[in-house]
């Protein structure tokens, strides 16, 4: 049996241009190490499918903070439920607006529920689903509407990623994964839906090192395991540093905004 535990570069070696890539981007459980590796891999024309496409301020990105926009030059389409792409402290925000305008970037809007149920439909190999979400809203555009038992639904296609990038706390060498806290989020469903799933983890143990009762994602859904090196910019410790910088930055921004508002009020 081939060893599943490899480096990120090895895990992503066969990813092709035009791939549909899904990842969880929601604080804990975000595969930052693999996102950076995908950027370095250099494949292009990607479709990025993520629950959240929130941008980091330029000053934070310069210090290593990762957002989905590090993949922007390699991206032609974004499927997203929540985005903060209109943001004045991020140059990626300007770039996204420009590329949408010139027609080289497409954005497909969904809700968080639609995002996860379309992936789930992909995991179950369904031909599509009828979802009640979006009736009477802009999400109706271009969608087949159907009334079933008196309730209106919109037809939604499944999402089957070519590549799923996930994060978990710990793996055994077979690929069984355990998650901690709220780091599950979309990771289990992305693992189930994707044709090829790569998991980054903070720790790898031998089979038997995980309690079978606690396994969140079973090995059959995991094709490769990447142990995040201890000296990696996205090791546990360094992530905490990134988080603290980001929180501090936001608090400063809020204080600035308040000071400005107070000045404006006095004028």
């Amino acid at each position: 049996m081939r060893d599943k535990v490899v480096t990120a570069a090895e895990a992503l070696a066969e990813v092709r241009d035009g791939a549909l890539v899904a990842f969880n981007f929601w604080g804990p459980g975000t595969p930052l190490h693999l996102m950076r590796a995908l950027q370095e891999r250099g494949v292009k024309d990607l479709t990025i499918c993520t629950n959240n496409y929130t941008l980091r301020a330029d000053v934070l990105r310069e210090q290593g903070a990762v957002d989905a926009a590090i993949l922007l030059p390699q991206t032609r389409k974004i499927i997203v439920a929540f985005s903060g792409v209109q943001q004045e402290d991020s140059s990626a925000s300007v770039e996204i607006a420009r590329r949408v305008q010139e027609g080289t970037l497409e954005i497909e809007n969904v809700s968080h529920g639609l995002f996860i149920e379309r992936l789930h439909a992909g995991a179950m190999h369904l031909g599509g689903i009828y979802s009640p979400i979006g009736i009477g809203t802009s999400l109706e555009n271009g969608k087949e509407k159907r009334v079933i038992n008196g309730v209106e639904y919109l037809f939604q296609e499944p999402i089957v990623p070519d590549l799923g990038l996930i994060n978990a706390a710990k793996a055994d060498t077979l690929g069984n994964l355990v998650c901690h806290g709220t780091a599950r989020a979309a990771n289990p469903v992305i693992a189930m839906a994707s044709r090829y799933t790569v998991a980054e983890v903070f720790e790898v143990v031998e089979p038997g090192g995980l309690d079978p009762d606690t396994i969140v994602i079973p090995a059959s859904f995991v094709d490769r395991i990447v142990r995040i090196p201890d000296d990696d910019p996205y090791s546990r410790e360094r992530r905490v540093e990134q988080t603290l910088r980001s929180v501090k930055y936001r608090l400063e921004k809020m204080a600035e905004a308040e000071a400005e508002a107070a000045q404006g009020g006095g004028a």
Partner: peptide, 10 residues
């Protein structure tokens, strides 16, 4: 430019 829907519709 892009969705801010998040979980609000659900």
């Amino acid at each position: 430019i892009a969705s801010k829907i998040g979980g609000s519709m659900d």
